[in-house]
Nucleic acid binder design. Structure first.
Lengths: 117, 117
DNA sequence: CTGACATGCAACCAAATGGTTGCATAATCC
DNA sequence: GGATTATGCAACCATTTGGTTGCATGTCAG
């Protein structure tokens, strides 16, 4: 849709796919989905890797534009950005979803609040 | 939701995400999307890597259940399987798409047989 | 059968990846 | 100011990854 953005975004796609390739990183996204705006320290809880490892993952996610950060005093808050995932879903994954169109039909009905299901 | 399938599928998710992480592999899927059932040799055309490298990528995609193969004489035909991508989209990516719900509303209209679409 | 073609298998290699440890920097609390 | 806390930076390491080359196997054509 955007005139220039597409070229740049397609380059970004690779970063996003690579960012999603690691289970720890997906887990971090999951956690931020559950509670947005967590600090590095909070995101470390329960993960069995070191703080620095988590920091690296977060930096990579940030580089892929999957999250944005905001400093608050000495704490760095991490906020989820679902847009790149969304874009991949729309532009790339959707392409493979002839099958999904059926699911969408069902979803359409659900969105309509269709009582017949 | 599925009683047993979920556990297995979640393990598969990682393989699928990893499989999608490489641009060459995504390109191969794109090519199979354009024309299904290609041989290894055909899939090599235009790629600047060796046949063996392509074969490795295809093996990885097959392991991730993203494509299925069928021998025909001395040729191995490769067929796209969009289901795992679909499942990821449904189960994981969809979760992050509060935003996408708006897009779905638009799509819903398109599916309704919008004459302008 | 012989040669050409399509693929598989295995060894090997360089670079990327995911992790660690140690130290530095900056903000907060007493 | 000094200790504590939150994070960053850099060096280092093992494993994985993506690629290569060389050779083996199996199938088709003459």
């Amino acid at each position: 849709m955007q005139p220039n953005g597409c070229i740049i975004q397609c380059m970004d796609d690779d970063a996003v796919f690579k960012a999603l390739a690691d289970p720890h990183r997906r887990q971090l996204l999951d956690r931020l989905f559950d509670r947005n705006g967590q600090t590095l320290g909070e995101l470390c809880h329960g993960l069995e890797i070191s703080r620095q490892a988590v920091a690296k993952h977060l930096a990579l996610l940030e580089a892929a534009n999957l999250l944005s950060c905001q400093w608050q005093g000495r704490e760095k808050l991490h906020y989820l950005n679902p847009v790149p995932i969304n874009q991949i879903a729309e532009r790339w994954i959707g392409k493979f979803d002839q099958h999904r169109l059926r699911a969408l039909s069902a979803l359409k009905q659900a969105l309509e609040g269709d009582p017949h299901g």
